[in-house]
């Protein structure tokens, strides 16, 4: 579990790394600890998975992935884990989760995010998913995003 100093590093870097030649020195100066310690703690958080990775977080719209479909499926409970693993391996699926149904408004329990450069591309992906789910799937839908309202990521309070 991250300790108080890790938490300070998270607060200092959650909006991004300093864009200066020696960013870890800059962070160290701000936090009042050594640069070696900053790097060692970041390395440990990478090892333990507290940090997934360090690098560029692209705005997928800016990369031309303007069609963003959240495909959702009502899949038989006894088959969802096996099928979810399979759908998650498709190259065009960027996230795949099992989530609770919210009946009667929401019968879907499998969520697979499909990114594409056009809606046609996304529809093609969803057709492949539908076919793989086969008879285990009772219904499905695709919710396209039409506007990013906010995209800041995690912000814990200082």
């Amino acid at each position: 579990m991250p300790d108080g100093i890790d938490r300070k590093i998270i607060v200092a870097t959650q909006a991004g790394l300093p864009l200066v030649p020696r960013p870890y020195d800059a962070l160290a100066g701000r936090l009042g600890i050594g640069a070696e310690e900053v790097k060692a703690r970041l390395a440990r958080m990478l090892d333990t998975g507290t940090i997934r990775r360090i690098g560029a977080v692209p705005n997928h719209y800016a990369l031309g992935y303007t069609a963003n479909g959240m495909s959702v499926w009502d899949v038989a409970d006894e088959r969802i884990d096996e099928l979810g693993e399979m759908i998650g391996r498709l190259s065009f699926v960027t996230h795949c989760y099992r989530r609770p149904r919210r009946l009667p408004d929401w019968p879907y329990n499998l969520f697979a995010m499909v990114h594409g450069k056009t809606r046609t591309e996304v529809e093609g992906g969803c057709a492949i998913i539908r076919e793989l789910l086969g008879t285990a799937c009772r219904a499905g839908d695709v919710l396209y995003s039409t506007r990013i309202l906010k995209k800041t990521g995690l912000r814990i309070q200082d």
Binding site: M1, P2, I10, T13, Q14, A15, G16, L17, L19, V20, P21, L42, M45, T48, G49, T50, I51, R52, R53, I54, G55, A56, V57, P58, N59, A62, L63, K151, T152, G153, L154, I156
Partner: peptide, 28 residues
């Protein structure tokens, strides 16, 4: 590289440049 990263952040082609945290691993 620094100038291009700065420009892409300003233009919002990048939403961020830095660590991506997995808050569940921190108990969140």
């Amino acid at each position: 590289l620094l100038a291009r990263l700065k420009r892409m952040l300003d233009e919002r082609a990048l939403t961020r440049f830095g660590p991506m945290f997995q808050i569940e691993r921190m108990g969140g």
